[in-house]
Simulated assay, not measured.
Amino acid sequence: MQVLVLNSGSSSLKFQLFSMPNETILCSGLIERIGLDNGNFKFKTANDTIELATPIPNHKVGLELLAKQLLDGDTGIIKSADDIGVVGHRVVHGGKYFSDTTEITPEVKEKIKALSSLAPLHNPANLEGIEVAEAIFSNAKQVAVFDTAFHQSIPEKAYRYAIPREFSEKHSIRIYGFHGTSHKYVSEKAIAYLDKPKSKIITIHLGNGCSMTAIKDGKSIDHSLGFSPVNGLIMGTRCGDIDQSIIFYLAQKYDYSLQEINNLLQKKSGMLGLTGFSDLRDIQAEAANGNRDCQLALEMNTYRIKKYIGSYTAVLNGLDAIVFTAGIGENSSIIREMACEDLDFIGIDLDKEANNKREDGIRTISTRNSKVEVLVIPTNEELEIAKQSVSLFKD
């Protein structure tokens, strides 16, 4: 069975085509800088690597570009859209409706749409990907794998907010957690690598969206994102933790509408609001050239990560390893170094030489004397989504 996996982020779309169940990758790629003038399309097979720089105004245009390439007579990978049996979709917010992988129906799409107000940068893009895939791969089974599922193990003392009970019980206002597919995948890899099923691990997913999870014995017990994927760490365009009184202050003092405030905190804040850039590569380059706003943004970003490392070490009552993953976590040695500075009191001792090396696969970037392993583990949400999608249709 050929399984196409679509992983739509807020400004990117990763994809892989697998032959299952042997997990062979037939092609993979990335559509990034969606919504910007300098969009980029990368497509890789065993024989070819294609890269195209072109404006990609939205996810629909990106998916149409992917479909065209998959079916290309010379460099494509399939002869017909019917070659693909299953399309697995990452969907960010499942709310109270979805705790498991689910075959997509009109009713499922309506619920995903209804949850868009809780994940406005993601669920609309996820839904758009589903609808475009339904049109192009009309005979394939469409499957949703929800970011929130892995965090169902978070205990009530951690997922409840200190608001009247009726809001939790009647309106399902609670911490849901996100990036669950990634946190699940890399934590399982870390546990196998350490050969330690009984373990205390902090996974740090850093991309345009960022989150951290405290994982005890393979289960999520706390997480930095909450009811929606906007709080916690400083992200590409999202503010992360903020005093909620600021919302009322902007509304009452300066007559901002709720929509304007939501747009401000979701799409105009974070690293973009601090620097004018949302892409960390641009920010790091500017910081190296002496841009003080960019230097400060990097300091603020990594300071927030350190606060969560300290908090989750306390929650776990100890720490065996921290794991950096996702686009920034895997590729930014600067972020990793700054995030691990001055954490020797909990046993973290970074090997700067190892940290600066670029290598494939799982790698340790802490010294031999470090009491806590510092790992870089490439996430593979797409493989995890493919496996879960296929599992729905096993006899």
Score class of each variant (00 low, 15 high):
I348A: 03
I154V: 14
D243L: 13
K268I: 06
G35Y: 01
R165K: 15
A339I: 08
I348P: 01
P229Y: 00
I365A: 05
N47A: 13
A314T: 11
V87I: 15
A285M: 11
I362Y: 00
V145F: 04
C27W: 00
R238Y: 05
N356C: 13
T102A: 07
R368P: 06
Q259W: 11
M235W: 05
G318C: 12
I365Q: 02
V323E: 03
E169D: 14
A192K: 12
A339S: 15
F41G: 00
L121S: 04
N317M: 14
G240W: 01
L194D: 03
A354E: 12
Q16L: 03
T237A: 09
S269P: 05
I348M: 06
D293C: 10
A214L: 08
G310W: 03
L52N: 13
I247C: 11
I385R: 00
L258G: 12
M300A: 12
A149S: 14
S389Y: 04
A339T: 08
Q2V: 12
L298P: 00
G232D: 07
S311W: 04
I221S: 00
M20P: 06
R336C: 05
Y159A: 02
V132Y: 02
E134D: 13
I348W: 01
I221A: 01
L52M: 13
T101K: 05
A214G: 09
S366L: 07
L6T: 03
V61N: 07
G361E: 06
L66S: 02
N139G: 10
A314Q: 09
L298F: 06
V143N: 01
T213E: 11
P197N: 12
D282H: 09
E128Q: 13
F167C: 08
K267S: 11
L13N: 00
I204G: 02
N58Q: 11
I334R: 06
I84H: 02
L343M: 12
H171Y: 15
S182T: 13
D37G: 12
K14A: 01
P197W: 11
P378T: 03
G209K: 01
R165D: 15
Q142C: 09
C210W: 04
S12V: 00
I234W: 04
H59Y: 07
Y176G: 04
A287M: 05
R165A: 14
T203N: 08
A67R: 02
T75G: 10
G226C: 05
Q266T: 14
V108C: 09
Y159P: 00
E381F: 01
V132I: 15
S99Y: 11
S389P: 10
G85V: 08
D342S: 15
I163V: 15
S116C: 14
K184W: 13
I204Y: 02
L52V: 11
I322V: 12
L52I: 14
P155R: 08
D360T: 13
V61G: 04
I322N: 02
G273S: 09
L280Y: 03
Y303M: 10
L118F: 15
R90T: 05
N58P: 10
N289K: 15
H59R: 04
T379P: 01
I77S: 00
H183P: 06
K268W: 07
E131S: 12
